[in-house]
Amino acid sequence: MGEAGHTGDLCSSCTVTSRCLLPRPEGGVWHCPEYRSIEFCCAERETWTMTDIGRIVEKHKGERGELISILEEIQAKYTYLPEEALRTVAEKTGRSLVDIYGVATFYRFFSLKPRGRHLLTCCVGTACHVRGAPRVVRELERQLSTPAGETTADRAFTLETQNCLGGCALGPIVVADGHYFSSVDPSKVAEIVSKTREGLDRVDVAHDRRIFPLEVSCSRCNRSLMDPDYPIDERPSIRVTISFGDKHGWLRLSALYGSYEIASEYEIPAETVANFFCPHCHAALEGAGDCVDCGSPMVPFIVRGGGIVQICSKRGCRAHMLDLSDVNEPASTA
């Protein structure tokens, strides 16, 4: 993913091609990861914004407290609340811009300034304060060399403070990209920063004990789907055939339960629901019910040793279910 070949589809407005090393698709156009923060890389943003925000507003129409839901969703998409987005929301909801601006500035959670790729939030509520949060903030400011509330020059980190995150007994608390670190002292700051830089969502395959390998087979023909010729996470991967839109090709999944590494013949855009097929008997891998998180169909596989593992067919949804039978049978019947 992200190799040459995609560069042709890059949004042409960005002249900073050196930054466009890791393009990712959004709104059907490939952008560099920083395109949101770069003013001149956003020529395509305007038209895209309008339809996109219209959809978000429409989705929450009539809800109680719809405004906050709308703003939350916009912020989830853009990492901040752009001015033109708020103006569009005002237009679409019929509220006055003053009211929306008042709500957007009232809550600390909302930001009107572009944020960096990673968000570090330090709690400076009363309990965290007496437990030494100001020293943690100072250390964070020193290591990132940016004052609290600001974004680093390379747009990698945004450092913010919160007045209480509600975990007073565990303070001082630092939240890095949604991951909570408790009882933080200045000596732990460096580790948090470097872990965040590496990416906290990456699973530590070697050391995480929640991760174990599975061997799966097709639920119809029962032939093994393991592919030793294409290792992922240094293990044989699971090979299936998928189709979405007019694309039809292979997909390889990590055999480690808990790892989300995949490889695919075609890049699968986020939120795409794909159809899964067995590469041997070409039967559709289906009939496992719907995902509890997003409602998309689940894809079943037979686990060697007895049991079924299901994964959600939607790209980006991490729902999965493992149902092992027979494995602990002797223990439970004994």
Binding site: L86, S96, L97, V98, D99, I100, Y101, G102, T105, F106
Partner: peptide
């Protein structure tokens, strides 16, 4: 309208 909260609360245009 009002914007911000607490110490930073103030009146102004969006």
């Amino acid at each position: 309208g009002f914007s911000g909260r607490g110490e930073t609360r103030r009146i102004g245009t969006p």
